[in-house]
């Protein structure tokens, strides 16, 4: 114990003072003699002073997170097809499963009713903005490789995703289920290109009656592993 404390102190002093100052050489106390053996006990001849080496887990760069941006087109049911922009972050739990969060936004167009009737628009400009988020998980259903010509092979996976979240559109937030399928191609070990198809499903009552609205989205994204 005495020795361990001394080693600890020595290391600290070496680190603090660098190579210039060494005060411990004068002050180092003598080690205490071992206590005399009690009656009936085998005397300790050699007291090994070997410290067991503590092995720490190696610091290895783990790359289980993936984040990136996507652009695509979103078909808002009854309100035309428009560009969509979004961001995606995923955590790869195993080679089969990942958790993901997506957030995206698009400006919906005009419904056929609004165009044909020529009347006042149903929604204001801010209500026409379609913004969603979804939190869920994915399954790498078809992992594999994609071959480009005879010399290049890229790791890839076709995956299925399912998530829940909300959509803000037409003046309200709506509970939304998002089901999708995508393909991921790793152009580098850390860089991936995704092609995603998603369906954002929610209930909407813009035209009076409640109905289930399917909003299909196709997007291309670039993500980095870190």
């Amino acid at each position: 114990m005495e020795n361990r404390i001394r080693i600890l102190l020595l290391s600290a002093v070496v680190l603090v003072t660098g190579c210039s100052y060494m005060p411990w050489r004068k002050d180092a106390p003598e080690a205490e003699p071992p206590p005399p053996p009690e009656a009936g006990e085998t005397p300790v001849v050699i007291d090994p002073q070997v410290e067991r080496r503590e092995v720490k887990p190696a610091k290895i760069d783990t790359e289980n997170w993936e984040a990136g941006l996507y652009v695509g087109s979103l078909s808002v049911e009854d309100f035309e097809v428009n560009p969509v922009y979004g961001a995606r972050i995923a955590y790869h739990v195993s080679e089969d499963f990942f958790a993901e969060a997506i957030v995206g936004t698009s400006d919906a167009g005009f419904s056929s009713f609004e165009r044909l009737s020529g009347g006042a628009p149903l929604l204001t400009d801010s209500e026409r903005q379609f913004t969603y988020y979804s939190l869920g998980f994915g399954w790498n259903a078809l992992p594999g490789e994609i071959f480009l010509g005879g010399k290049r092979a890229y790791n890839s996976a076709v995956y299925l995703t399912l998530g829940a979240g909300a959509t803000r559109f037409a003046g309200g937030d709506r509970f939304t289920l998002t089901a999708g399928a995508g393909a991921r191609i790793l152009v580098r070990d850390w860089l991936a290109v995704h092609l995603d198809m998603r369906d954002h499903i929610h209930e909407i009552d813009v035209f009076g009656a409640n109905k289930t609205s399917h909003n299909y989205e196709a997007s291309l994204s670039l993500t980095a592993f870190f």
Partner: peptide, 23 residues
């Protein structure tokens, strides 16, 4: 992934450099 083909085998006693980890 477990489905990817084995393209290289390193024998006992040889050394390898660990670059990174994914899952």
């Amino acid at each position: 992934g477990r489905g990817y083909p084995v393209v290289n085998v390193v024998e006992r006693g040889e050394r390898v450099q660990v670059e990174k980890r994914r899952t």
